[in-house]
Design a protein around this nucleic acid. Structure first.
Lengths: 218, 218
DNA sequence: CCTCGGAAGTTAGAATCTCTAACTCCAATT
DNA sequence: AATTGGAGTTAGAGATTCTAACTTCCGAGG
């Protein structure tokens, strides 16, 4: 890489780092090109050399976020173990990741950015995160189902590159994901704040319920 | 009510109506005081006679939203029936409500508005919605549990005015709520859009799983 | 019926934002 | 050494929310 390009990349990273700080402190609306420039000791318009506009910056933050989450989940499920243990590891890692930067979690999975349309590249990152979760789900000895739903899920899995799993496993993975996300998004949005209920206990109870899936059928 | 106050109230309602239109069309960022004024044939600053600031307007939309949702859920669970049927009714009503105005759903349960702090009045409305859902949950013949979690839930239920239900029922209600919200928030945020999976089937499958709770224990 | 107080609306403007255009300047490459 | 192009600057357009000062006008009370 060219020396110019190195500096350029360095600056881009610094912009994103500061943007994440502002995101953490003041939410997505706090990500201001002018403010970031000021923090870098530079005027606002200078940054338009590095990002075509504010949305492009946000898009890149989202994309990076998906990749970071995928790495985290992948690391969490890498040590092999019983499915229930892997699920617990993945769920715990997911929650830790979400709570470490709530605004970033919401940036990925909350209210979508108005004009934003996920580019190919981002979808791939999102898929990596999903695949990591499906890895945690793993085995399944149940007979395959053949609803219309399972057909759609199977087709989706083929396109996403985890067609080797049964559609039941993939559906189960989606269910795991949506249930964990349900609790996490409520927690991160502060809905439990005044309730006196510890969201962690709620979360762990849900994980336990999910883990029961692998116990012998009744 | 004074005639002046009548006009005033009428204007306030019109502002909120237009705000909801803009919300539906362009998201929360599209709610602009100036734009609403223009649509009403009035300059922007005129509206500050009716709402102290933009946040106050948003807050009122949120509050109204909770009340509307509570009414909807209450109506859905009013015809008595088997628990599973009531749950299906409530879940279907909730989904219909969310899909009828996705941006409004996100306004209530998505990324929180930056400076926003729910006023007492809003919490009461939110509680009404929760109570309607708990009504759908209804009976339970399981023995009570005594985790720390169930203690917190029971305490919360007492404060919220549904202390007559067992903590298990209340916990179950929270679970129902978070699972439905998990799927709905993903659907409303457009996460299933390119997957080829029909979110309704996913939703109904989850409702079915929830309904199985009332079947005799294994 | 008539006055008058206060509500409602206007314009002007401050402070913020994103983003464009034109310009300067410096450094690396040729 | 000359040139080219990237990086930064200032100026400014067009938004935004919101305040302040001013005008107009209507409903309520005498």
């Amino acid at each position: 890489m060219d020396r110019r390009q190195q500096y350029r990349e360095q600056t881009r990273q610094e912009v994103k780092r500061l943007a994440l700080e502002q995101l953490a402190e003041h939410g997505v609306a706090g990500i201001s090109v002018n403010a970031i420039g000021k923090r870098m000791g530079v005027t606002g318009p200078a940054l338009y050399r590095y990002f075509v506009n504010r949305d492009a910056l946000l898009t890149e933050l989202i994309s990076d976020g998906y990749h970071d989450l995928a790495d985290t989940l992948q690391a969490a499920v890498t040590p092999p173990g019983a499915p229930a243990a892997r699920l617990l590891a993945a769920a715990t890692a997911l929650r830790a990741w979400a709570l470490a930067a709530p605004h970033r979690y919401l940036l990925l999975f909350g209210t979508p950015v108005p004009g934003y349309q996920a580019p190919e590249h981002t979808l791939a990152a999102a898929n990596r995160a999903m695949t990591a979760l499906l890895t945690a789900v793993g085995e399944d000895s149940r007979p395959p189902a053949s609803d219309p739903l399972h057909g759609q899920v199977a087709e989706w899995g083929r396109r996403m590159g985890h067609g080797h799993l049964t559609s039941r496993q993939q559906h189960w993975g989606l269910t795991v994901w949506s249930r964990l996300h349900g609790l996490l998004s409520l927690e991160v949005a502060g809905q439990f704040e005044l309730s006196g209920i510890d969201p962690e206990l709620l979360f762990l109870a849900e994980v336990e319920t999910l883990a029961a899936w692998w116990e012998p059928e009744s």
